[in-house]
């Protein structure tokens, strides 16, 4: 479990980092927290010729208020910083609720927001949360910078809209609308494992208490975060009754996900878990929306 030899570069600025990425292209791999990349290298599943270590790029580590009421997060911000941020707790309660589910404290001390979404593991929390928040991702290269909506950033299994010379520099997460309740839940074999299934929900109610908007995003049951189309179709305009939430959960788990089977759970079990968890998070989100 030793990686093959590689060239190691340690830039201190974003400009320097993207210059290296431009120079080495497909041969280069940016190293963020290393919580996925390093094990894959030790298993020799990834064999990058050049490692561009971003850990000395200070300018990428921050959590800032955005003018729209949301939050801007630098790509090299560690999970633990997000977990302990008052700003995040205040403005992004869904993200705040989710971060403790990410692996273990040791991993949260090293892992970064940008690293997690660039890796794009479909069973990871942050891709799903970024989608649920309708976040945007800023990419940089020597060619300039561009913003990509989260829905368009995640393209498939470990695949994103990133070009080989690009890196994520910032994530913009808008706040949830007023009268919105949220919830996140997941089921994993052991505390801190990759979840078999996870679900994030945000439900916005009208002044009359009917459902205005529903966001229901699944993780671990497809090749990327899976946004439910069925849940809004069932719920929008309706009273959020227990039966309606049950139907939304059931239909979402039937129609909107594409689970796979592995040694831990068959596809059928994942689908079952998806419906159970969807119901639980929708219920909690509605309760919270009603309490606001």
């Amino acid at each position: 479990m030793k990686p093959p030899a590689f060239k190691y570069l340690a830039p201190t600025t974003v400009d320097e980092a993207v210059a290296y990425l431009a120079e080495y292209g497909y041969d280069a791999k940016p190293l963020a927290g290393g919580q996925s990349l390093i094990p894959t290298m030790n298993f020799r599943l990834a064999q990058p010729a050049v490692l561009v270590d971003l850990n000395r790029v200070q300018e990428l580590s921050y959590i800032r208020p955005a003018e729209d009421g949301g939050v801007l997060i630098g790509a090299m911000t560690r999970h633990v910083q997000v977990e302990r941020s008052d700003l995040v707790a205040q403005r992004l309660p869904l993200l705040h609720e989710t971060v403790p589910f990410i692996a273990h404290p040791q991993i949260r001390n090293r892992g970064t927001y940008g690293g997690s979404i660039s890796h794009a593991d479909p069973a990871a929390e942050l891709p799903a949360i970024t989608v649920a928040h309708r976040g945007r991702v800023q990419l940089r290269s020597t060619r300039g910078s561009r913003w990509v909506p989260a829905e368009e950033f995640f393209l498939g299994l470990f695949t994103t809209a990133l070009e080989p010379d690009e890196m994520v520099v910032e994530i913009a997460l808008p706040a949830l609308p007023p009268r919105t309740g949220w919830a996140f839940d997941e089921f994993s074999r052991r505390h801190g494992d990759f979840a078999l299934v996870g679900v994030a929900a945000a439900v916005t109610l009208s002044a009359q208490g009917r459902v205005d908007e529903v966001r229901l995003v699944f993780m671990g049951v497809g090749d990327r975060p899976m946004t439910s189309a069925a849940a809004p179709a069932v719920l929008v305009g309706q009273e959020p009754s227990d039966e309606a939430l049950e139907e939304a959960a059931q239909r979402a788990a039937q129609e909107d996900i594409d689970p796979f089977g592995d040694v831990h759970a068959s596809a059928a079990f994942r689908r079952h878990l998806a419906s159970v968890l969807a119901k639980r998070v929708l219920t909690r989100a509605v309760e919270r929306a009603q309490a606001r």
Binding site: F43, R189, R190, H191, G192, D193, F194, V263, H264
Partner: peptide, 16 residues
């Protein structure tokens, strides 16, 4: 062998 790492072979931890 499909369970050849601690990602797939699950040892109980202090939590379990």
């Amino acid at each position: 062998l499909l369970t050849a790492s601690f990602m797939d072979y699950l040892l109980p931890t202090a939590m379990e």
